[in-house]
Design a protein around this nucleic acid. Structure first.
Length: 276
DNA sequence: AAGGGTGTTGAAAG
DNA sequence: GCTTTCAACACCCT
């Protein structure tokens, strides 16, 4: 489900409930969730370790333990729930973590796309998928000049480029649609056609949109809801995403939907003219 | 009622 | 290399 704001919300929520809990074991109903390990090795490794802190980079969630970090990516529909040990195993619950206090943490993922990986604590950025990731909009050195330096002579549509996590970490389909609306940029604008001013505005808009979304606890659309049943409120702030045919908030032109790089893309044909 | 679409990403193919 | 397409999977909506 999540982009950066949703993962951040999940991180904060889980942190309140999980920090200080000690693992007994982990049961894998669907072992393919695990990368680079098998259930027995993984369970033995986390057994006895205490969750010291919950962390995040981009859309990756970190359970920081005594000696290891459990890196979890929720992909499209991953969720975590805290339940008593005797709660029935629900459909789509693929991993059950047991704690010494008798509680369990259930990993629920309808589409089974999510991944989990255990790395030595402090080595998170070396994990596959995290190495080579671009800066987060909240990194100190992130800004217009950084984006411009990543652009080079790319001819890709700006929408696809912003979704590339090696360029910028944390933007997904919802927020990219919203960022481009705020910047008045057509999603298919070739990166090469962007000017210095555009990169500055993209950087600023990325920070603004994600900050606001974090403040509101993320976005809850369709039937999606966050871990532990927490729902966000940013869906009330969406201008274009999932609003095909609805009037643009600025000019009342019907919002258009097209496919860019195979992803549903929403924009205002009047406010976001193509350039270059 | 089959097919397309879905808050993702990495491997394969061009 | 750089870019695009597709597969992993289950469910919902036309």
């Amino acid at each position: 489900m999540p982009e950066l704001p949703e993962v951040e919300t999940i991180r904060a929520t889980l942190s309140e409930h999980l920090v200080g809990k000690t693992f007994v074991k982990a049961e894998f109903i669907y072992p393919k969730i695990l990368k680079n390990s098998d259930p027995e090795t993984f369970s033995a490794a986390i057994s006895g370790q205490t969750i010291r802190q919950m962390g995040r980079y981009g859309k990756y969630l970190f359970f920081i333990l005594d000696r290891n970090t459990l890196i979890s990516h929720l992909r499209m529909e991953g969720k975590f729930y805290l339940k008593p040990i005797d709660a029935v195993l629900e459909k789509h619950e693929h991993v059950v973590f047991h704690f010494t206090d008798g509680e369990t943490l259930r990993y629920h993922d309808t589409r089974k796309f999510g991944t989990m990986e255990l790395v030595p604590r402090g080595c998170e950025r070396e994990a596959k998928g995290l190495c080579g990731m671009g800066l987060e909009p909240f990194d100190e050195s992130f800004g217009g000049p950084y984006l411009q330096s990543m652009a080079k002579t790319s001819i890709r549509p700006v929408k696809s480029w912003l979704l590339d996590q090696t360029v910028i970490s944390g933007l997904g389909n919802i927020y990219v649609n919203e960022v481009l609306f705020r910047c008045r940029l057509h999603p298919e604008t070739p990166v090469r056609a962007l000017e210095t001013e555009d990169f500055a505005r993209l950087a600023e808009a990325s920070r603004a949109v994600l900050s606001k979304a974090i403040e509101l606890g993320g976005t809850t659309i369709r039937t999606y809801y966050s871990s532990l049943g927490v729902t966000g409120r940013f869906q009330n702030e969406l201008n274009v995403h999932d609003k095909k045919g609805e009037p643009c908030p600025l000019c009342a032109t019907p919002i258009a939907k097209i496919q860019v790089g195979g992803r549903g893309t929403y924009y205002c044909p009047h406010c976001q003219p193509k350039k270059g």
